[in-house]
Deep mutational scan, measured.
Amino acid sequence: QIGDLVNIDLDLEIVQSLQHGHGGWTDGMFETLTTTGTVCGIDEDHDIVVQYPSGNRWTFNPAVL
């Protein structure tokens, strides 16, 4: 839910696979593998929007978090 702290604890290849159809994966997202983020929103597809200390916001398949 919004305000929750979240981490990704999966291998890169699994995360990339799960992201298909959920915003995809870009090289800029590598920070998300090692950094705790804060849930800042849930979109119309029930994907999770997470903000990181860098100021970046990324959209994830809920199965990734």
Score class of each variant (00 low, 15 high):
T38Y: 12
S54F: 07
T59A: 08
D27L: 06
T59R: 10
Q51D: 01
G21L: 08
V39C: 04
L12S: 08
E44G: 13
Q1R: 15
W58C: 03
G28H: 10
Y52K: 09
R57I: 15
D4Q: 10
L12T: 07
H46K: 13
T35E: 13
D9C: 14
L18T: 02
T32S: 14
V6S: 01
H22V: 00
D27E: 14
I14R: 10
L18E: 07
G3P: 08
C40R: 08
N56H: 10
S54W: 01
T59E: 03
G3V: 00
E13W: 08
T38L: 10
W25S: 07
G23Y: 05
D9L: 06
T34C: 13
R57C: 09
F30T: 09
T32E: 07
G37S: 12
G37Q: 02
G41R: 13
N7E: 10
G3L: 00
Q19M: 01
D45H: 15
Y52R: 02
Q16M: 11
N61S: 04
L33A: 05
W58G: 02
I14H: 11
V49F: 07
V15S: 03
G21I: 01
T35M: 08
H46Q: 12
L12D: 01
C40G: 07
G55V: 04
N61L: 04
D47G: 15
L18D: 04
H22N: 08
V64T: 12
Q16E: 11
F30D: 13
G28I: 00
A63P: 01
W58V: 00
T38R: 13
T36V: 09
E44K: 14
I14V: 13
D4Y: 15
L5D: 09
G37F: 01
H20K: 15
L5T: 09
A63S: 08
G41M: 10
D11V: 04
F60T: 04
S17R: 15
R57Y: 06
V6P: 04
D45F: 11
R57F: 07
S54R: 02
Y52S: 01
S54G: 05
N56F: 03
F60K: 02
W25D: 01
Q1K: 15
D11N: 08
G55M: 03
I48L: 11
M29E: 04
V6D: 04
S17Y: 13
W25A: 10
G37M: 05
T36H: 00
I2T: 06
E31S: 04
H20Q: 14
D11P: 15
D11R: 09
L18P: 05
C40V: 15
E44C: 14
G23F: 03
E44D: 11
D9H: 06
D43I: 00
F30K: 14
L33P: 02
G28E: 14
N56R: 08
S54V: 01
V39A: 01
T26Q: 14
L12H: 08
T32Y: 06
Q16G: 06
D9G: 08
L18W: 07
T36M: 08
D11I: 03
H46T: 07
E31D: 11
E31H: 09
H20I: 11
F30R: 15
I8R: 02
S17F: 11
I48C: 12
I42L: 09
F60M: 14
T35L: 09
V49L: 10
W58Q: 05
N56K: 06
N61M: 03
W25Y: 06
T26N: 14
G37Y: 09
H22S: 02
P62A: 06
N61G: 00
R57A: 10
I48A: 05
D9M: 10
G21N: 06
D45M: 14
D4S: 12
V64A: 11
H20R: 14
D45T: 11
V49N: 03
T34W: 08
I42E: 12
D27T: 12
T26K: 10
F30G: 12
V50G: 02
T38E: 13
L5M: 13
Q19C: 04
M29G: 03
